[in-house]
C-alpha cells in the first residue's frame, strides 16, 4: 500500500495494523526516515519536500510491485510525506512483512535504497546561509545500483 500525505503517521499504529490483519506474517521490518538538523557544518531550521503528484504514486507503486516480485512478501507499506517539516519530523515509513525474516529485512532495505533515487521528491533545506536544494548523493546511487 502506498500513501503520499502531508500529515504525520503513527509508526506503532501502522505496524500493529499490518501485523493484526494477516496471521501468516512471521516478521515485519521497518525503516523510518527523519529530518536531520544539520547538513555538513550548517544548521537546518526546516526542510520542505515537494513532489510530482501523479508520478509519485505511480513510481511508489512500481517499487512495491518490484519488491513483491523479488521477495515473497505478505504486506508492503510505504508512507511518504511532503510539505514543510521540522528537524526530528518523520519523512518516510517503509514496512515489509513476510513469513520469515530474510524477505522482509532485505526488501525493506531495497525499497528505501530505490526510493532515494527513483521517487520524484525534492528537498529544500532552510539553512543559516539561505535556502538550498539537497543534491543527490553518489553513495545513494551506488546503494540503489546494488539492487539492479
Amino acid at each position: 500500500m502506498i500513501r503520499v500525505q502531508t500529515e504525520d503517521f503513527d509508526i506503532g499504529a501502522e505496524i500493529t495494523r499490518i501485523g493484526a490483519d494477516n496471521t501468516e506474517i512471521g516478521g515485519l521490518a521497518s525503516f523510518v526516515g527523519l529530518v536531520r538538523d544539520y547538513a555538513g557544518d550548517e544548521k537546518i531550521s526546516a526542510m520542505t519536500l515537494e513532489h510530482y503528484p501523479g508520478m509519485t504514486e505511480k513510481e511508489l507503486f512500481k517499487l512495491e510491485t518490484e519488491a513483491r516480485e523479488r521477495w515473497d512478501l505478505q504486506e508492503v507499506l510505504i508512507v511518504h510525506r511532503y510539505g514543510r517539516l521540522k528537524p526530528g519530523d518523520r519523512i518516510v515509513l517503509v514496512v515489509t512483512a513476510s513469513a520469515h525474516r530474510k524477505a522482509s529485512l532485505e526488501s525493506c532495505q531495497f525499497l528505501i535504497d530505490w526510493l532515494k533515487t527513483k521517487a520524484p521528491f525534492w528537498k529544500l533545506e532552510d539553512r543559516e546561509s539561505g535556502a538550498k536544494w539537497v543534491d543527490s548523493r553518489e553513495q545513494d546511487t551506488v546503494a540503489a545500483d546494488k539492487w539492479v
Partner: peptide
C-alpha cells in the same frame, strides 16, 4: 514533459 534536478526521496 517534466524537467527537474536529480530526485532526492526517502
Amino acid at each position: 514533459v517534466a524537467i527537474f534536478s536529480p530526485m532526492t526521496g526517502g
